[in-house]
C-alpha cells in the first residue's frame, strides 16, 4: 500500500481532525492511546501501527 494511506507519527492535529469527522472512529482501550486528544486516529481501534506511522484498517486515509 502506498504512503498516501498512511499517517506519519506526530501528525497530531491532522489525526484529530480526521477522527472527529470519521464515521468509523472507535476508541481503542486507553492503554493503547498515543495522542493527548481522546478523539484521534492514533487512539482509534481501527488503526494499525506500521513502520513510521499508522494505517487505517477501514481504508479511510485518502490524502
Amino acid at each position: 500500500m502506498s504512503d498516501q494511506h498512511q499517517l506519519p507519527m506526530e501528525a497530531w492535529e491532522q489525526a484529530q481532525t480526521l477522527a472527529i469527522n470519521c464515521p468509523e472512529f472507535k476508541p481503542d482501550v486507553e492503554e493503547e492511546w498515543l495522542a493527548e486528544e481522546s478523539v484521534s486516529c492514533y487512539n482509534c481501534r481501527y488503526r494499525r501501527l506500521v513502520g513510521g506511522g499508522i494505517r487505517c484498517m477501514k481504508s479511510l486515509f485518502n490524502f
Binding site: 481503542d28 493503547e32 481501527y46 488503526r47 494499525r48 501501527l49 506500521v50 513502520g51 484498517m57
Partner: peptide, 18 residues
C-alpha cells in the same frame, strides 16, 4: 507490564503487537 514488540507488515498482530 506492556511490552512493545517488532512492528512489521509480515507480523499478523491486530493493531500494535504488544
Amino acid at each position: 507490564s506492556r511490552h512493545q514488540l517488532f512492528i512489521h507488515e509480515d507480523i499478523p498482530y491486530t493493531s500494535h503487537n504488544s
